[in-house]
Each structure stands twice: as C-alpha cells, then as structure tokens.
Amino acid sequence: MAQVLVVTSGKGGVGKTTSTAALGAALAHDGAKVVVIDFDVGLRNLDLVLGAERRVVFDLINVINGVAKLPQALIRDKRLENLHLLPASQTRDKEALTEDGVAKIIDELREKFDWIICDSPAGIERGATLAMRYADAAIIVTNPEVSSVRDSDRIIGLLDSKTAKAERGERVEKHVLITRYHSSRAARGEMLSINDVLEILSTPLLGIIPESQEVLRASNVGSPVTLNNPLSAPARAYFDAARRLKGEHVAMVVPSETRGIFNKLFSRKAA
C-alpha cells in the first residue's frame, strides 16, 4: 500500500525541503521505493538538495500539461536506485498546477512506489494546498519558536478541513517534526521547549532534529544529510523519524550538545 506523505509547515525556511530529502533517502536506504515531488513551482529547491539539478529535463507542470509522460520526468537518484525525484518547474507560475492533474499523477505514482513524499512550498496558497490535497499522512515541520508554531497550527487546521481525506470524513494522520532544535538555547529559555510546542499543537511528535552544521554542509554538496554523513546527529535523528513513520517504535531522544571527550573529562574534574 503506497503512502502519500506531505511535508509542510506554513512558514518558510524551517527545513521542509531538507527534511523531505533526508527522510526520502532514509526510507529508500532501507529498501523502500520512494519518490519525492517538489511542489514549489517557480522556486524549486529539492533538485539542488538531492544534487539532481543538472539532470532535470521535464518537470511536474510538463506532466500535468501532457508535454511529457510521468516516467520521462522522474529522475533516479545516482546513489540510491529506488529514490526518485519529480522536480518542479522553475519557469512556470504555480497557476499551472491543477487539482485534476495532481490527482492523476499521484494515482499513477501510487502504483509504482511505496512512499510518495510531497514537498510543500511555504504559505497556504495553491501549491501548498495541492501538495497536501491527496495526502494520507502529513509531517508538519516546526522550529521551536512562536511564529513557526502558530503557522503550523494553521496548517494542521487546513489538513483537517481542506484535504481530500478530510472531505471524505477521514483523518489525515499528522506528525510534528521539530527541526533546528538547539538544546542549550532551549535550556536558556531562548526557544520554546519541546513540551511547549507539542502542547500548543497537540499532535504526536515524529522526531527532533538538532541544529547542525552538517545540514548546511550536505545541502551544499547536493546530498541529503542522511546519505552525506549517516552518523551525524541530524542524520541519525532523521533515520529514527523514518523508522517511526514505518510504524516502528523508536525511543525519542532529545538531542543534547555534542561535546568532545576532553570537554567531558574537564567538566567532570571541575565538578
């Protein structure tokens, strides 16, 4: 049974594209057939994060308009053969996205893939509503700060009312993924705590991704962080989140600052 996931947030810059790529690669790494779709028509990014920008020929809009067939537009990842990308168009505007066109593409992909991950653009406009339209489950990417959390709350409301599943009276399964979590800043009260975020959103937690240089380093070389440095803290957090998506029970770890062994020895002596 194929699962259609939407990665969404309302607010921009919280890590939707990074998370789409990292989770897509983590799921594909474990053997599942995965396709990631970039819905950010006009401002596409997912191709860059996956390092596929130089191989884009056709895109989502081409498929909707009938210029290309779906298999022609899918780009297979060079590192993981069961990870595919359906890129967004950079030149068209998002009005070219139609509900019927998206429905047809999703239906066709459901037959070939285990996971269909839709990377939503920021905002609540057409691209974002169509990205969530046919989702079975949603990952709401949230930074631990008030504006991001309020936007996420708004998005959860839309997921409960504007998706095809909600209109049929069913429920879109929802997960909160907290990204850019900075344990020392949270301890100093400069960020919302994990509990605050979950209390406001009253939605189950999928994972906590720590703020890390590794994320930027990976996207600069065009690789999901889960492939670029699988042992780094954010990569491990994404792998755990991917396993929870598959229904496995993985204990939640609140990331703490990584300190060198000398640091640890020193602090122990001082104490």
Binding site: V146, R150, D151, D153, R154, G157, S161, I200, S202
Partner: peptide, 27 residues
C-alpha cells in the same frame, strides 16, 4: 471536541460553545 486551530473561526449565534481542546493563537 478537537482543538480549534489558528485561522479557524467558530461562529455559533444560537447559544453556548464548549471546546474540549484548546483554541490556537489566531483562532
């Protein structure tokens, strides 16, 4: 019975409204 999310609006002029969850900022 559900939380009322940011951006949602519940209008009930006929009487009382009881909300079992919370009412989000912007709702």
């Amino acid at each position: 019975e559900d939380p009322v999310r940011s951006g949602q609006s519940v209008v009930f002029m006929e009487g009382d409204v009881t909300i079992l969850g919370s009412v989000g900022s912007g709702a």
